[in-house]
Design a protein around this nucleic acid. Structure first.
Lengths: 206, 206
DNA sequence: ATTTTTTCTGTACCTTTGGTACAGTAGAGT
DNA sequence: ACTCTACTGTACCAAAGGTACAGAAAAAAT
């Protein structure tokens, strides 16, 4: 078999594992569950990953990468829509909200949040990856907020670092709402409220 | 032994279980872990709860109850601080934010969020309790928002139901931030940003 | 065409642990 | 002395994680 076959098998395992883990949690998902869903054997799984711990690392790495790719794509579109940095960010949030709304099923959940609620099981490496993910989201938004702030007044008393973290906060919280209500509209609206707040933070009216 | 001894044992079990489960997740927390921390035997645990599932129900019921008690207490103080419904809600959020900030350790996490990320393990009863909890938070805030709206103009395009859900969203998301950063300031600031947004939603300036 | 390497399958096995059941007991109240 | 509550102690079973390895099947290299 060629490398592509290997990669597609690995991907199949990761996809199956992610789906199951977001449904039941990491610990509650057995390797047997995963190999069954991925249509592979235990030996095959251990060929690709160093046990369950190695699988966890593979999962979070893949998740953060895919996430970054989505955000990058949306920002490309958003940046084309206007020359105004504020409008670009607002457009990004709009696109992101719509992307969520268009999901057929209930939002599957975020691996970062899931792992955070099982964090004592993982070692420092995994916890480091989780923190790295959250930090990257903060940086991504904060860069934009700072650029906007260089041309517009910012509402007093609003720390931009916290406003950037609010993106993560809203998304993670919104995902929980959507899962509890079994309805993506909740997450969609939460992102739009965040968008609205940002527009108010940079609104120059008294 | 008397009833007080029984109740205190039950409470000790619940407290131990909650702490451990918020650290490692429900599945990853063994009954052995819990009985060790609670200084009881396996038989004793099964005397008080119908297995691990019964324990989960006891945990979520207790959590929602304690949560409600805290909110009620804070609203009593907040309602005394002013006659203006908007000021009362803003004060409540301030008090809540300060309560979190004063926690000695990192916020332990929310059982509702934790269980949501392991929801496929639980039956409809537990999932019902989780939904009931989130719904009660929404109602609690929405009642206030509607009262405020009866006397003040609301910013157009802001659905009050979603603004009420934003409380849950911000708190759950903020908890994740605080846990990842190992710092309660994140959650504190998120609640204050939500407070700021609410004040803007009801601000009457053009 | 053959050899080699990669990518798995299948089986067998071990150890730990999670979850459950239940018989028995200690101690407080009556 | 009796009874009930509140446990303790022990025993048991299925399941999970992990390991080891023999070998097959497919592709790549030669």
């Amino acid at each position: 078999m060629n490398q592509k076959a290997s990669e597609s098998t690995k991907e199949r395992i990761l996809q199956a594992a992610e789906t199951l883990i977001l449904q039941s949690g990491f610990s509650a998902t057995s390797l047997d569950d995963i190999i069954q869903k991925a249509a592979i054997t235990k030996g095959g799984l251990f060929y690709h990953f160093e046990g369950k711990k190695g699988l966890a690392r593979g999962l979070i790495e893949r998740y953060l990468q895919q996430d970054q790719e989505l955000f990058d794509q949306l920002f490309v579109v958003a940046d084309q829509s206007s020359d105004d940095p504020l409008e670009q960010l607002l457009k990004f949030l709009e696109l992101f909200a719509e992307t969520i709304q268009q999901l057929e099923d209930t939002h599957p959940g975020c691996l970062v949040a899931g792992f955070t609620y099982e964090s004592h099981q993982f070692d420092d490496e995994i916890r480091g990856l989780i923190r790295q993910g959250v930090t990257s989201w903060r940086k991504m938004i904060l860069r934009r907020l700072n650029t906007i702030a260089s041309a517009r007044p910012v509402r007093p008393g609003v720390p931009l670092e916290q406003l950037a973290d609010m993106f993560t906060s809203i998304v993670e919280g919104g995902i929980i709402l959507s899962r509890v209500y079994a309805n993506n509209e909740a997450l969609y609206h939460q992102v739009l409220l965040y968008r609205d707040y940002i527009s108010l933070v940079y609104s120059s009216s008294p």
